[in-house]
């Protein structure tokens, strides 16, 4: 099953390789990974998307929790969440295809962020389905290059990734 996992981690060197090691050591592929500083500069937020056997993934989640530098782990399996991703696409833009491209960018509420004589660079944000739809529509016009950020995620409503909560999650989790 596909999982989107959010983590709060210490903003230090070495943390990422420990986390990556838990996945690679079990032959799990990380489909995407986003990391950046959070509101508190000593803490980074990470969003990982991975696919795999649920039992093994549960083990990985526990192991993530166990890492000394990991402050909090949330698997968005049972939590309602929003997630967004950004894609940059460089497409062929010739005289006759330009209006078509512009129309599509407008429909998808994207932006053209760079223009050259033969290409447009388009930025689109959205959830996975939206990006997929856009990419498949634009493909026939000739994609030269495409870069995606991978999704970032956040729980809906009042739920938050707070640092304080983590002790309970860490130890009490298996207390049923």
């Amino acid at each position: 099953m596909r999982h989107t996992i959010s983590l709060l981690v210490e903003n230090e060197f070495g943390v990422l390789s420990r986390i990556a090691g838990l996945f690679s050591g079990r032959g799990f592929n990380i489909e995407s990974l986003c990391v950046a500083e959070s509101l508190d500069p000593t803490v980074s937020t990470m969003t990982i998307v991975t696919t795999g056997n649920d039992a093994i993934l549960e083990q990985i989640l526990k192991q993530l929790n166990k890492l000394i530098n990991v402050i909090k782990v949330v698997d968005f399996k049972e939590i309602d969440y929003v997630s967004r991703e950004m894609v940059l696409v460089k497409v062929n833009a010739e005289e006759k295809t330009r209006p078509e491209i512009l129309r599509m960018v407008e429909i998808f509420r994207g932006k053209i962020i760079d223009v050259s004589s033969r290409s447009y660079t388009i930025m689109i944000t959205g959830d996975e389905d939206k990006l997929k739809a856009f990419i498949s529509l634009i493909k026939p016009l000739g994609i030269k290059e495409l870069v995606r950020t991978g999704p970032i995620a956040m729980a809906r409503g009042e739920r938050m990734m707070k640092i304080k909560e983590k002790t309970e999650t860490k130890g009490g989790e298996s207390n049923g």
């Binding site: 981690v9 000394i68 530098n69 990991v70 402050i71 640092i163 860490k170 130890g171 009490g172």
Partner: peptide
């Protein structure tokens, strides 16, 4: 270490 607080007392 804020991110490390083992649970000693059982539920």
């Amino acid at each position: 270490i804020r991110s490390y607080q083992p649970t000693y007392v059982g539920h």
